[in-house]
């Protein structure tokens, strides 16, 4: 398979994305390098084939969003909504990520080597997110399914109104959101953590993480709660 380089100082993002969208399952193994991304939005969104896209530099908003079976590596930071709504495949940010990373992801793995901003994994629907650094406030808000591994600290209101997603945090949690609680790690959690850390190339003791899951008290309307949760 030929390897191609797109220079975004010369070529529009739409030309890069059109090329990527024309690839099919048979073009598996192809590697695309993107240079001079210069913070452009929508780089490599909507991949639907097992191509590998390597972005050399900082990406703008929604990089690798809606990814399906592709692999997007960003050798720099990523703006708002990196890997949002991804279905499968891998998005790997080697720097930091801004707000709303992995929002609403249905599947796949989002790896962020540095810190992630606020609302990381908001409304997660089945994807996995591994953050090497810390996450900002309101992360995993209303996360429904999937797993989040946070190797640093978490900000305020972690896992607010959590459904069935499970969060693992190694550092400090500034505060838990409504209906989120710390639970004991089970053997299945240790095995899941070991697997996710290994896939992300991170070396942490799985036993050093805390598990955060839903207390499930918000699942049903409680007329006596008087709007206090």
């Amino acid at each position: 398979m030929e390897n191609l380089t797109f220079d975004l100082a010369q070529t529009k993002v739409s030309a890069l994305n059109s090329y990527l969208h024309r690839q099919s399952g048979e073009s598996g193994g192809q590697k695309i390098t993107v240079i001079n991304p210069d913070g452009a939005h929508n780089i490599a969104v909507g991949l639907d084939s097992p191509v590998e896209v390597e972005v050399i530099g900082h990406a703008g908003y929604y990089a690798g969003g809606m990814n399906k079976t592709g692999k997007v590596i960003i050798k720099g930071s990523a703006g708002t909504g990196v890997g949002e709504n991804m279905m499968s495949g891998v998005v790997h940010v080697q720097g930091f990520a801004s707000n709303g990373a992995g929002a609403s992801a249905h599947g796949g793995l989002l790896i962020i080597d540095g810190d992630a901003g606020l609302r990381c994994g908001i409304s997660l629907k089945g994807g996995d997110i591994v953050v090497g650094g810390s996450v900002g406030s309101f992360s995993a808000f209303m996360a429904q399914a999937g797993r989040m591994v946070i190797c640093g600290d978490a900000g305020d209101a972690l896992g607010d109104s959590l459904y069935e997603a499970v969060l693992y945090v190694k550092g400090n949690i500034k505060s838990l959101g409504a209906d989120a609680q710390i639970e004991a790690l089970t053997d299945a959690d240790i095995s899941a953590l070991t697997d996710l850390l290994q896939q992300s190339g991170l070396n942490h003791d799985p036993k050093s993480f805390k598990k955060v899951a839903s207390r499930r008290e918000l699942y049903h309307w409680n007329a006596d709660a008087n709007q206090e949760y």
């Binding site: 001079n36 210069d38 900082h58």
Partner: peptide
């Protein structure tokens, strides 16, 4: 603001500090 609703990114070198809403204004 506490919710970081609006973006900001900073680039600092020995020569300057540059601030912009998005990195695309700093890339040059």
């Amino acid at each position: 603001d506490p919710f970081a609703c609006k973006p900001a990114v900073v680039a600092e070198t020995d020569d300057y500090v540059a601030i912009a809403s998005e990195f695309r204004s700093l890339a040059h």
